[in-house]
Amino acid sequence: MSDYNFAYLDEQTKRMIRRAILKGLAIPGYQVPFASREMPMPYGWGTGGVQVSAATLTPEDTLKVIDQGADDTTNAISIRKFFEKTAKIATTEKTSSASVIQTRHRIPEEQLTEDQILVYQVPIPEPLRFLEPSEIETRKMHALEEYGLMHVKLYEDISRHGAIATSYAYPVKVEDRYVMDPSPIPKFDNPKMEMAAIQLFGAGREQRIYALPPHTKVVSLDFDDFPFEPSKADYSCDLCGSENSYLDEVIVDDEGGRIFVCSDTDFCSSRQAINSELTYE
């Protein structure tokens, strides 16, 4: 017997979070307030995502945790270990064999299926926050669908940089209704949000949960004469050769040498494995 209740949180708390998740799924893109708990990790480390995952997991689930696409960074490892210890569930690094995937700042390259749930860690759930500091006002703007201000931000981008320079946390409109912050994923990932898997967003410090049911319409905001463009570094991966995955630039020596590699480590290593098989044959 474990000293912890399954997945750390007590049953009442999980029930409260599940209610918020269901409400979020019923109103795609709407930020549902919930009574966020203190978690045994600092804010900013994914306390919102961890609570959503805890309320979502069942003993039969297989969990994958990614941080900026990678399975082997501090944040990903510690959250994976947290659930191994408190829920005693199976974990994996393979995207296709996971049933619940908690992610920070990326959507896996591999297409997700309807048997999977993707849980995002969200630092600031309110897309209008940096333009309108008042929470009362932003809630009213959401309620009345007054989203002109969101375009003011994009206008400022173009007037200052000549193009929409927002490259992550790029605002989207969900089902022609709510404007939503997709969490700080690169805008390269925005088109992938119309997917078969359920997407859940948890913001621990800000105490908000929102959600996208499968195959929800998600449109990135733009101007008629400055259309939305999902962008990535103009290279191919130096390890697996992929030309259409999102890349990280890595500095490899003191002479300014650099390589580009897939940010999705599972995607990259499975491609590398296939490549080496082909060479040996």
Binding site: L131, E146, G148, L149, H151, V152, Y155, E156, I158, S159, R160, F223, D224, D225, F226
Partner: peptide, 22 residues
């Protein structure tokens, strides 16, 4: 809006009523 450029300030009402052409 003190943290938005003059052009953005003037454009806000236009965008609020649905103008989407920069």
């Amino acid at each position: 809006r003190m943290n938005v450029s003059a052009g953005g300030n003037v454009g806000e009402r236009l965008m609020a009523v649905g103008s989407r052409h920069y």
